[in-house]
Design a protein around this nucleic acid. Structure first.
Lengths: 236, 236
DNA sequence: CGGCAACTTGAAGGAAATCAACGTTAGTGG
DNA sequence: CCACTAACGTTGATTTCCTTCAAGTTGCCG
């Protein structure tokens, strides 16, 4: 594939990109590395960084509790949000030696850290483990492609609708109410994720609200009133 | 990560995404599956499909010669170009059982097909092989993220500039002239890849030409006259 | 040479960004 | 508990960039 790096090397990159809702039961069997649950610090306060782009990737993280925002700062000063990670998601299982993005806690976050050396060893000794990592990477690639497609072709309304539906679906997977979506991220986070400005995010949500498609009981939560309409809009 | 599928299931997805230039020497050691080079048809004419989205993914492909365009057709009738694949690139090494996009030859194409069963077997028996696949997936994820970032934040000019530079860099990697970029794809292919219309692609190339940054000796090739300017524009 | 597909160019329209206020919420300290 | 403040969110007016629509033009293949 074509590496669309502007300058020869401003953008090294690669890692993970998952995204479930708090309390997700994650039907995938827990990654089989429990013996390694390490002694590294594992609780973070809101807006605290877990690591920065370029840091040595010495560990993988499994999100236990809370929501994490993965982002990159661009040379022009803009910020791009790569992904949001929820409980059950894994960060940093890919191969490159250093982090390809920064990670910030959006809420209080607890993670379990798994040393990379342990990962390497398990790849060597357990073929099933390697296969599982490959599936994870594959799934992440799939979702990144979906996101790409969304940004390449869709209107602001379609992007927001798809975003809300994705969060709703995550709730459903986690067994919580899919109509009641919690937004731990700010409008800026959402905008930087969807390639929109905060004004457009806000305006579009207001528009959905006026149409009766959603309600906004608080700024940090959305009630989906008409899922079908949201699906239609998300189609493009 | 958040799956931005509009409706619960319109977009299953996942596979690969590579992109070198014809004749690329690919410094990565050839994937170690030569014993399996199979007896399946391996030459395709321009605009012939290698496979369609949803087909059983029974084989991986290594591009030997020519350029392949990976694309998806959207429910609204639009087309999204996922990636371009060049000699040395691998397609379909990810885990899902079916193709997540269609693949079409842009030029005369030769591929080597490797049965998935052989891949599976090698994952079980050779840890190094699994690690290598993981690296491939990781690299592909990295490049998809770069592309995503490009579409999320950049202007038409920046996207085109980044695209041309990426092709140029590929030439450099392949040992051919990085100033002389061959465009085997049409303006429509480029537009569908960069999330732009053919008119915008054409206009933007014309503008670069008027500024003296590039020359267009034919519609299918670009001469880069001022790489530094192109880099500046690509920055955003 | 003719015909068709790809490409280019121009003019008009629209969607989102930008610029600018204003409202709301939450957190702090009196 | 309340007042103050700062960050976050909303809304409106204007501008910009890209799309859309509509002709041309080029270039390739019969």
């Amino acid at each position: 594939m074509l590496a669309l790096t502007a300058t020869p090397d401003y953008g090294r990159d690669a890692a993970t990109n998952v995204y479930p809702m708090p309390g997700r039961p994650h039907r995938d069997a827990p990654i089989e590395a429990d013996p390694f649950s390490a002694a590294m610090p594992s609780v973070y306060a809101p807006r605290e960084d877990l690591f920065l782009e370029g840091d040595d990737a010495t560990h993988m993280c499994e999100v236990i509790e809370g929501v994490i925002c993965a982002y990159r700062l661009l040379p022009d000063g803009h910020r791009h949000v790569v992904s949001f990670y929820f409980p059950g998601d894994l960060i940093g299982y890919c191969c490159s030696g250093c982090q390809s993005f920064s990670a910030q806690a959006l809420t209080r976050v607890r993670v379990r850290r798994i040393p990379r050396s342990a990962i390497s060893q398990m790849i060597e000794t357990r073929p099933g483990f390697a296969r599982r990592l490959l599936e994870l990477a594959s799934g992440e690639l799939m979702m990144t492609r979906e996101h790409l497609l969304c940004l390449a072709a869709k209107s602001a309304e379609a992007r927001l609708a798809a975003f809300l539906l994705a969060l709703s679906r995550r709730n459903a997977d986690a067994g919580t109410d899919p109509k009641q979506v919690f937004l731990p991220m700010t409008r800026l986070d959402i905008g930087d994720y969807l390639g929109l400005t905060i004004e457009t995010v806000s305006r579009t949500l207001s528009k959905f609200k006026r149409s009766g498609i959603i309600a906004l009981p608080r700024t940090t939560s959305v009630l989906i009133r008409d899922e079908a309409a949201l699906c239609d809009i998300a189609q493009s």
